[in-house]
């Protein structure tokens, strides 16, 4: 099986590094973007197999990115897993409505990340 690529979108360099390590450990190749706008550019150039997505970011936040992504490329691909400090039910509901496949609440560990990726069929 060829290596799957995951786009990690987070304005925190530390979170990107941590997520990269966990994903690479699980066999993914990782590309990074620090806001939604840059993430859209990555997707337009070469669509990743999965997106791990922060919510609060400058320029374009995670939910806006997801709405653009789904409008431009269809309803369910690539799978998008939110990974955010937002942990109220309303955020999970918004994520579902916008077409996210799963939702991770920070802080997270590799077990949670891998579990969520398994749930959406990526592992």
């Amino acid at each position: 099986m060829s290596t799957l690529t995951c786009l990690v979108v987070d304005d925190s360099r530390v979170v990107r590094i941590v997520a990269r390590r966990m994903l690479e450990h699980r066999g993914f190749s990782v590309v990074e973007a620090e806001d939604g706008e840059k993430a859209l550019a990555v997707c337009r150039a070469q669509m990743p197999d999965a997106v791990l997505l922060d919510w609060n970011m400058p320029i374009m936040n995670g939910i806006e990115f997801l709405q653009h992504l789904r409008a431009e490329f269809g309803p369910d691909k690539p799978p998008v897993v939110f990974c955010t400090t937002e942990n109220d039910m309303s955020y999970v509901e918004q994520a579902i409505a916008a077409g996210a496949q799963e939702f991770i609440m920070k802080p997270f560990d590799e077990e949670i990340l891998a579990g969520k990726f398994a749930q959406v069929g990526l592992l």
Partner: peptide, 20 residues
């Protein structure tokens, strides 16, 4: 806990069967 509901539970079921 937040940790417990993130292990194995799909978000659709979280929204439907849990309250915060």
């Amino acid at each position: 806990s937040q940790f417990e509901i993130q292990r194995g539970l799909p978000m659709q079921l979280l929204v439907k069967y849990f309250s915060k």
